[in-house]
């Protein structure tokens, strides 16, 4: 089956991101296809490479990045939601006159059309939120 994944809650604050990650990993192990993982609302904060959780805790950004590298996942962060919350790639940072960017490897920033497209193309769109 072809899945689309939507994550709408932030890392550590809420279980949604962990559950989405576990689901995505399990689906891939079972041979399913993940069309795209889309991060929206506070979910965009999963895509900052500047998170530094304690060493004995899981690193949610690293988990996603490594899973993306292993399976060529398309991890998309909503641009409007990300800008509000200070998640920027190099070109967004430059455009906004900021001195740094923080998007993590394996993530890309794009628009909400990517979420709607995932709903159209995937057999199932799974929403992980509150």
């Amino acid at each position: 089956m072809k899945f689309g994944i939507l994550v709408t809650e932030g890392p550590y604050q809420h279980q949604a991101s962990d559950t989405a990650y576990q689901f995505t990993k399990a689906a891939l192990e079972k041979g399913h296809e993940i069309f795209r993982v889309f991060f929206y609302n506070d979910g965009v904060n999963n895509g900052t490479r500047l998170m530094v959780p304690p060493q004995d805790d899981r690193n949610l950004q690293k988990n996603w990045t490594e899973l993306a590298e292993e399976h060529q996942l398309d991890l998309v962060v909503c641009v409007a939601a990300a800008q509000r919350r200070g998640v920027l790639d190099a070109s967004e940072a430059k455009r906004a006159g900021k001195d740094a960017d923080n998007i993590a490897p394996g993530f890309r920033i794009s628009g909400l059309g990517q979420l709607v497209e995932a709903g159209i193309i995937a057999d199932r769109l799974m929403v992980f939120g509150d």
Binding site: Y40, N41, L112
Partner: peptide, 19 residues
């Protein structure tokens, strides 16, 4: 919370996809 307004943003984008 931000849910209502960010939901509305997706709704408006979805209109462009003829769904």
């Amino acid at each position: 919370t931000v849910y209502a307004v960010e939901s509305l943003e997706v709704v408006l984008i979805s209109a462009a996809f003829d769904q």
